[in-house]
């Protein structure tokens, strides 16, 4: 696929019976997300703040969707509603036909940074999910080792997170989320705190891993390049109030590599996103000026 630092024998170590289990009993694939007429409102000191307004979104099983938008547009809030951390004021979020009311291991979460348990070794971090799911110590550890090799960090199993670089920590975070075999992977600006070079490698890495699992991914970012490079579909949001303003299909061939970043197709899509966001940002400014 790519020359990203992922071990080549991962096919051998992955437990494919568990992978196949992501197909439901009736043969339908898992990982369908549906967001219906969702409003999310926060109470603040200065009154209610509408973070997300009238969001409607359907994500197909196995789709890689990026939520793109400026800071404070409610994209993370919308993702947190899918994760079950935030309750919508009205409307409903469903994953595989079940209404989301609380967080759960079927929706793996990767945070921006510093979300590993610092008192657990890398392996203990990854084994945590399986342990909570009730498997024994031995099996949890073997699952953890499998996923650590998948992200190329088997050699660091006994290290503590604070001895790892930011990029390595995020790879552990991805392994930890995947170790529960989630049907949906939710990623909240996971590479936002990394430097540009590491970020590109992490993106390739992620696509590589996703190619293995093909679970549904919802990826929040404010970086247009990142959104175009990674996703099948870009959902653009605008700020105050957070609204979905566009839904762009990204029909770039896979597997994708760094060279894609300078191709004409990529540029055209990037321009489309830029124009959209610029238009929306200008609109928002004008509205704010009128209001002021």
């Amino acid at each position: 696929m790519s020359d990203a630092p992922v071990s080549n024998n991962r096919l051998a170590v992955l437990d494919h019976s568990r992978l196949r289990a992501k197909t439901g009993k009736d043969g339908s694939e898992r990982g369908r997300i549906s967001v219906r007429d969702v409003d999310i409102v926060f109470d603040t000191v200065s009154g209610p703040h509408v973070a997300v307004q009238q969001a409607n979104l359907t994500v197909r099983p196995g789709e890689f969707v990026c939520l793109l938008g400026p800071s404070g547009c409610g994209k993370s809030t919308l993702m947190n509603a899918i994760a079950g951390f935030v309750e919508p004021k009205c409307g409903e979020v469903q994953v595989d036909g079940t209404s989301v009311t609380e967080p759960g291991p079927d929706r793996g979460m990767v945070f921006q940074q510093h979300s590993l348990f610092p008192w657990k070794t890398v392996q203990e971090n990854v084994a945590f999910g399986p342990l909570m799911a009730g498997v024994g110590n031995n099996e949890a550890n073997s699952v953890a080792r499998t996923f650590l090799s998948l992200v190329g960090l088997a050699a660091f199993a006994n290290a503590y997170p604070n001895t790892l670089s930011g990029g390595m920590q995020q790879r552990v975070g991805i392994a930890r989320a995947l170790a529960n075999y989630p049907s949906v992977l939710l990623m909240d600006e996971p590479f936002g705190a990394l430097d540009a070079q590491t970020r590109i490698m992490m993106q390739e890495n992620l696509l590589d891993i996703w190619g293995e699992f093909h679970n549904t991914v919802v990826f929040v970012t404010h970086d247009i390049d990142e959104a175009v490079f990674l996703s099948d579909r870009i959902v653009v949001m605008s700020a105050s109030p957070g609204k979905i303003i566009a839904d762009i299909d990204v029909r770039l061939p896979r597997p994708r590599e760094q060279s894609l970043l300078t191709s004409p197709d990529f540029m055209a899509l990037k321009r489309q996103c830029l124009d959209l966001i610029r238009k929306e940002t200008l609109n928002a400014f004008q509205q704010q000026n009128k209001a002021g």
């Binding site: 630092p5 510093h114 190329g152 960090l153 604070n162 930011g166 990029g167 430097d195 490698m201």
Partner: peptide
């Protein structure tokens, strides 16, 4: 974490 600045050279596990 002081590791952010070193992230680039450390991403490759062999080099890391």
């Amino acid at each position: 974490m002081d590791s952010k600045s070193n992230a680039a050279i450390r991403t490759d596990p062999v080099a890391a």
